[in-house]
Write a protein that binds this DNA or RNA. Structure first.
Lengths: 210, 210
DNA sequence: TCTTGTCAAGAACAGTGTTCTCGATACGCA
DNA sequence: TGCGTATCGAGAACACTGTTCTTGACAAGA
């Protein structure tokens, strides 16, 4: 039943936009609004559930796209992940907005949402780990942050490499925010080319062989 | 009076978050909600006015920061613009979210908002215009888009150069979205260093001398 | 003095999230 | 079989929201 509620809520997100109405969802289920509170303690809780699902769904899509590419084709895997994220985002713009847009007012993302949010980063990191690390001169405070992140995961990745992963990760969602939220609208027509071009640039920056 | 309404609305945005209540604004003005409709035909119209003001305010802040740097210090001007944008965003997170977050549901940005939105891009482009253009192999469809944009403004900037401006512009708001919306929270402590590092990288990409 | 325009108030409508009480149904156990 | 209990949904209520429309007060100009 919780699954059914989430499914209808997702449908409403897709059609009506990001302002999810509990009463509308309930109407579609031939249910009164208060009955929803048997399954979700509040509207925020329902949104949180949708957010977690979206993160997982997104990571799955990216992972599936990558797994179709030979493991030694590093740049191919890189592009597959990026395009997988983009395809998912364009196919589910409202859910994308939910997780990568401005936070919903009065809604504080609970702890459950941070782990699924990192999955795409890990995907990118795993690809870069097999390439030659670029050498950059990082500010020492930033170096410490990166070191802490790496140590916290028991990894052995060089700081410079994680740095480039974060740069690419930032850029990936930078492009997608602009595209999904319509800021490229009367500006760039060749959206796929634009996106690929940016992601190639990031692959270069991360030291992936061409 | 319209100015007063906007001022109170801005204050509400800053404290209560992005869900602006007309009735609450009216209460603060010792006015009944319907009286606001003398000055703004709808809630969306008020939001639009706030959005335009925010764009202008942001561009002014960035421009002011840049003008304090000698004009031949290209990288200095570049960093000044980027930091100016960041400082403004961190000082006005709700207004930043209004203009660079997910679009408000049911709200379509009117035509009036596209011109002020390009001001920061022009600031960056003016700096890069004085540097040596990098040469990239752009996809031809993207080349056409860039050519159209340049011709539409009567400019003579090489396509490769505008390309790098757009890359940097994308990255700038990519980093800021993550920082302002809290996605860096238990991840990067040295936010300023992190930001500067990213913007230096973009300056490199744009061919600015060190 | 009469008219016109500007402003705000107030009621009304349809919608929202949330809480509470109440009744119905079904399950396990003596 | 009968009883107690737990689960579920209905429905009313509360405090909100944006928006529209009517009404009335006030001031300026002819």
């Amino acid at each position: 039943m919780s699954q059914e509620i989430k499914a209808v809520a997702r449908r409403h997100l897709a059609t009506d936009g990001a302002d999810l109405s509990l009463r509308a969802v309930a109407r579609d289920l031939d249910i009164v609004a208060s009955a929803l509170y048997r399954y979700f303690p509040s509207r925020d809780a329902l949104l949180t559930a949708l957010i977690i699902d979206a993160y997982d769904d997104l990571a799955d899509a990216a992972g599936a796209a990558e797994s179709a590419v030979p493991r030694d084709d590093l740049r191919g895997r890189w592009l597959a992940v990026c395009r997988g994220v983009r395809d998912w985002a364009l196919a589910h713009p409202a859910e994308y907005g939910l997780i990568y847009g401005s936070p919903v007012p009065g809604y504080a993302a609970p702890e459950d949402t941070v782990e699924p949010a990192t999955k795409v980063i890990l995907l990118l990191a795993a690809i870069v780990a097999d390439a030659a690390p670029p050498s950059a001169d990082l500010p020492s405070a930033l170096h410490d942050d990166l070191h802490r992140l790496i140590a916290g995961r028991g990894s052995t990745m060089p700081e410079d490499q994680l740095d480039r992963v974060l740069v690419a990760w930032t850029h990936l969602y930078g492009v997608l925010n602009f595209e999904v939220f319509g800021r490229l609208d009367s500006m760039i027509e060749a959206r796929s080319d634009y996106f690929d071009h940016h992601m190639h640039l990031m692959a270069d920056l991360a030291g992936l062989p061409t």
